[in-house]
């Protein structure tokens, strides 16, 4: 109160320490890290380190959005470190811009670019019921886990962490074009996985 110049910064770090949103971030970060590291303890450690960085530097950021982007960028580095430590050097250090067009996902379309009959998406029954089903979430998690690492990382930044396209391009050091290609592939693959393992009872359209 008696320190008007320092007040905004103090307020920002106070908010970071106490705000309920930090618990939401933590949960998102733990998911993000666990899926990529495959180990709850390592994930916990990486998230902890990233949050410590956030506490220290909260005052330097204007607004939560900028801080969140930054915290997740740190987390991504921590995850990369942890993966390297596990001797998964090739995978962890593979640059995101690397083209993975050779992956098997010529899959859903024929050579003219139209759905193969067996791959054509069907209508999903009762999607709103699925989110209340514990088993659905196990399938969802397994499908996320089955994505190639690059696709998983970018998809999670976009849909779990809700970073904007620009923020992801910056954090992952990829172009907008790459981002769109990666997200398209990830969505095709996830959709197919969920349809095969959960929603697959609908009639196939002709």
């Amino acid at each position: 109160m008696s320190n008007p110049e320092g007040a905004p910064d103090l307020a920002a770090s106070e908010e970071l320490r106490d705000g309920p949103f930090i618990e939401d971030w933590r949960r998102q970060m733990i998911k993000f890290a666990t899926l990529q590291l495959g180990n709850a303890q390592w994930a916990e450690d990486a998230v902890q380190e990233a949050l410590v960085g956030a506490y220290k530097n909260a005052g330097a950021f204007r607004g939560r959005a900028a801080l969140k982007t930054w915290v997740f960028a740190i987390l991504k580095n921590k995850i990369a470190d942890a993966l390297r430590h596990r001797q998964r050097v090739v995978e962890a250090s593979a640059p995101l811009r690397e083209d993975d067009s050779a992956d098997e996902l010529a899959g859903p379309f024929d050579e003219r670019g139209f759905w193969r009959t067996a791959e054509r998406p069907v209508a999903w029954e009762n999607p709103e019921r699925a989110v209340h089903d514990h088993q659905f979430w196990r399938v969802f998690e397994a499908c996320l886990d089955a994505l190639p690492p690059q696709q998983a990382r970018v998809f999670m930044m976009r849909e779990l962490i809700e970073l904007s396209a620009d923020e992801i391009c910056q954090a992952a050091d990829i172009t907008a074009g790459n981002l769109h290609v990666i997200l398209h592939r990830a969505r095709l693959r996830l959709r197919r996985c969920l349809e095969r393992n959960w929603f697959g009872e609908g009639e196939r359209p002709c």
Binding site: D24, R27, Q28, K31, W115, R120, P121, V122, A123, W124, P127, A130, V131, H134, W137, R138, F140, E141, F155, M156, E159, L160, I161, E162, R187, L190, R191, L194, E195, P205
Partner: peptide, 24 residues
């Protein structure tokens, strides 16, 4: 097929956010 794909993208997005929020 593509109409269904479009709906599935919405469902994917909602599911991913619910998942991140701890719905599971």
């Amino acid at each position: 097929g593509c109409r269904n794909f479009g709906r599935h993208l919405q469902i994917l997005r909602e599911a991913a956010r619910a998942f991140a929020a701890g719905e599971d």
